[in-house]
């Protein structure tokens, strides 16, 4: 399969802080990639570097096989970008924004724009300034999809939208995905949305892409173990894939990535009275994973294989 997005050792510093650290990101054609991370983890800077809005200190970005730093305008027609907050010219009316944007493209699906505007009951005469966040997001999405791009890169498109409007936006996104061969990368803070929409997720922690695997795969590999001890619980356990642990008197709670035989042996060696293994939903798994001891987080980057549930722990960073 071809990589539609590809970065090579992408690095960016702000002052002395390394915001993005040697990022190698690959997104294949047709994938819907959920890009996650806490605030300040480097998601936004990464997306801006993907779009050439921020210059990397070192490294390269390729979109649709072409270097972003020297991309010809023709290629940019095939890629849509929605920045955080859906920036548009507020003094324009919806009609003016459509006319302005249309002027740049050789391919423009007029019917699609009309459909979206009609569906959300947006009049062309309305000023963008007067729109709600949700309406603005819909206009911005309509402008982005009208040139029928192959690749869409959206920076937290549902930020600041209420539940109902967010659902509308996701519905539109699902419609876009129905078009075969379309690739989407989007960042989000709402894990439920990501689970619905994304095939694959990447999680950045402190500028490093720590997780890059199919969505279900991640949530299925992060497990919470509750160990019950007859006496006081041991302080800590040393086993590969440990993200975090809490000592609660006679109980020890562990967050593990990729629970397997080796880990089971290590845990059983502590001789607990009982072991309870708790599955987590995506949000819980994300929270437990990202608040772990950052420098020692186990990385996992899995190759695409839908029914392969084994976890390859690629070692400690």
């Amino acid at each position: 399969m071809t990589d539609v997005i590809r970065t090579f050792r992408l690095t960016k510093h702000y002052d002395t802080r390394r915001v993005v650290d040697c990022l190698n990101l690959q997104v294949q054609r047709g994938q819907v990639y959920g890009f996650l991370g806490r605030n300040g983890a480097g998601k936004s800077t990464t997306i801006k570097m993907l779009m050439g809005m921020v210059q990397p200190d070192s490294g390269e970005v390729e979109l649709l096989g072409e270097k972003v730093s020297a991309m010809c305008p023709k290629t940019r027609e095939r890629i849509a970008y929605i920045a955080e907050g859906h920036p548009l010219y507020n003094w324009m009316t919806i009609g003016e924004a459509v006319r302005f944007t249309r002027a740049f493209y050789s391919n423009w699906n007029h019917t699609l724009v009309e459909q979206i505007l009609d569906h959300f009951e947006l009049s062309r005469k309305q000023k963008l300034r007067r729109l709600s966040n949700g309406q603005r997001a819909q206009v911005s999405l309509a402008l982005a999809v009208a040139p029928e791009p192959e690749l869409l890169i959206l920076d937290d498109p549902t930020l600041g939208l209420d539940t109902v409007v967010r659902r509308d936006f996701l519905e539109s996104l699902i419609q876009i995905i129905h078009r075969k061969g379309r690739t989407i990368l989007f960042s989000s803070h709402i894990l439920g949305d990501v689970e619905r929409v994304a095939d694959r997720i990447g999680i950045m922690v402190d500028g490093v892409l720590r997780v890059d695997c199919p969505t279900d795969h991640f949530r299925e590999s992060v497990k919470k173990l509750v160990l019950d001890f007859p006496g006081p619980a041991p302080e800590a356990v040393d086993c590969p894939g440990l993200v975090n642990s809490w000592n609660l008197g006679s109980q020890l709670e562990l967050i593990l990535v990729g629970y397997d035989e080796a880990q089971r042996t290590a845990v059983e060696a502590l001789q607990p009275r009982s072991i309870e293994i708790i599955d987590l939903n995506l949000e819980e798994a994300f929270i437990e994973y990202t608040r772990g001891r950052k420098r020692s987080l186990p990385l996992f980057a899995m190759e695409e294989s839908r029914h392969d549930q084994s976890i390859g722990d690629q070692g400690i960073a």
Binding site: M53, K74, T75, R76, Y81, A83, E84, G85, P87, L88
Partner: peptide
């Protein structure tokens, strides 16, 4: 932030 919109036009 409208540069993000403007400068991505082809």
């Amino acid at each position: 932030d409208t540069y993000y919109f403007l400068l991505w036009r082809p």
